[in-house]
Write a protein that binds this DNA or RNA. Sequence first.
DNA 1: TTGTAAGCGTTATCAG
DNA 2: CTGATAACGCTTACAA
Lengths: 348, 348
Amino acid sequence: MGESKVQMTEKRLTRVTSFDVAEAAGVSQSTVSRALAGDTSISEPTRRRVTEAAQKLNYQVDENAARLRRGKTGTLALVMICRPGENRKDLNPFYFALLGSTCAAAAARGYEVLVAFQDSPENFWGHYQERRKADGLIVIGTSENTAAWDYFGSLPEGNHWVCWGAPSDAFPWVRSDNLAGAMLATRHMLVRGYKDIVCLGSETSPQRQFKERFDGYAEAMREAGLNPIMQRIERGLPREEQGHRAAADLIASGRKFDAIFGVSDEIALGALKELTSQGYKVPQDVGVVGFDGVRAGAWSTPPLTTIESDFEVAGSLLVDRLIATIGGEPPSPRRVPVRLVVRGSTRD
Amino acid sequence: MGESKVQMTEKRLTRVTSFDVAEAAGVSQSTVSRALAGDTSISEPTRRRVTEAAQKLNYQVDENAARLRRGKTGTLALVMICRPGENRKDLNPFYFALLGSTCAAAAARGYEVLVAFQDSPENFWGHYQERRKADGLIVIGTSENTAAWDYFGSLPEGNHWVCWGAPSDAFPWVRSDNLAGAMLATRHMLVRGYKDIVCLGSETSPQRQFKERFDGYAEAMREAGLNPIMQRIERGLPREEQGHRAAADLIASGRKFDAIFGVSDEIALGALKELTSQGYKVPQDVGVVGFDGVRAGAWSTPPLTTIESDFEVAGSLLVDRLIATIGGEPPSPRRVPVRLVVRGSTRD
DNA sequence: TTGTAAGCGTTATCAG
DNA sequence: CTGATAACGCTTACAA
């Protein structure tokens, strides 16, 4: 026993284990485990002794050992899909905001979040569950990166996951209420007296959301007895550049218009810039509305009227859906509510 | 053995272990471990057999078991400090960009990243190492949250960490080359013919960086035989509001000025808005330069001339410094290089 | 209410 | 070059 004490002292330099706490508290190791885990079968006096000993020794459970034993990790993996070759810092701010809300929601439910940015086959990786690094996976990103979605869409059965931005309706998605949002935006412009409203977007983009937003716009237009008009964006460019060019094309086409609905804020901002530089007055001559509620929209001149998703609900829904799936429930898609944020790019 | 086969089949439903691979490849379990870990002592034919068996069985190592045995996690924890009560999604975009670059750098070095957003004593938590959840910790955030820095500054000895935004020089920090950046900004304004340049900032803010930026500005001013002037921001407000008010105060004071150097982009943007709304023409009447290079600056009217840190270097430095510390090197602070980004808020 | 003991699935040491 | 075998530190039946 003398020897064992020396060993212990040496050991403590490296790591305090539940055995050390047990010895200090005068109980067995399993009692320590139970007491600290909050097991109700432990008597209060014992628990107190254990807790105090643990505190004094500065003991913390080794999560690796605990997880190995439990077979669960208490961790969710979060993969952010970037455009191929894109610098991580240039990721669309909308996704960063969603990342923040998702981490917050996970933390509120007692989960850790393992984050990875991925953009191309060299770094696609989703075997978090097989490696016991996480209990499930959240994938967030632009639909444009089809290779990425192909990859995650074909992960082995038994992998729990949810996603935002999926190009396929077959995936377990959470997404904005795009239809309602687009209708909100369009009706707002109609109410403000704009008539010739053009949508800058695409029905063929893998970005599912864009199609839905166009549909909402179109529905609101028809409701008002007006014809929906789509000015298509060019595939593959940065969003603001798409907006830029689409606006330039629209102007060049000679078509009459007095308002623009951009299917994303960055597209709308690009269009706004083009309009202004060509001498159009916004919101007097032309109204502009975007979709997403990115921070930059508040800084443009005029600041951009937009549709904003409820980020908190979005993060919570992603996490809750995933946890439900882990718990065995079948996946079921969800919509996140949106609201109109009126700023200066539409007239009073 | 017949029985063992049945067991195996049943087991495979739950999890494939290295034993299963060993059996399939006709080698011992430890050989599987070595072969898959790239141990050089394994012969090529054996390795091939093992690799194939692993692939066929869809085997992946259980990282929890591996980590328990190794005593290392291959993971870095990243704590983002928010303002108390602030919604996670509203975190300064600069920090989100840094988060992205840091994750990229960690991935490039073979580390996973565990991300947490923290804002107040209820959720301060940094015992990642003690719990064997990570090998070290990166803390990123505003110096304003002094409670947070007090907390992380007093983590037990033996915890490896680095930080960005530390209010104390005693912490193991990485930060922008604020002095050089501010001099760059100020000289740029001087060259463009501005003379009465006022700095919007603070020398007393816990935000160490602000003091350094003021110093750089002051040095460049004196170099040119001019007097540095500080217009103080009010403590505790959102940055843009601080800029707003400081600009308003400056105007109200009647002091002559023809340029403003904001110690952060959001402060500069707030000032820009105020100036414009009061009828000043930027950049003709007044020049404005910020610091940070946030995305929103590109969307303001006029777009904001600014100083941008090299995000990639920043992320790499944070990760490299931390890994070095984990490896036993003493901490040593580092500066991240900056560059001038000329946009429209300073005249030609 | 508490103690004993059996794993969880690896990696690493030690033979051979 | 490969095979036994002992940890790693915890959780959880099973006993008492």
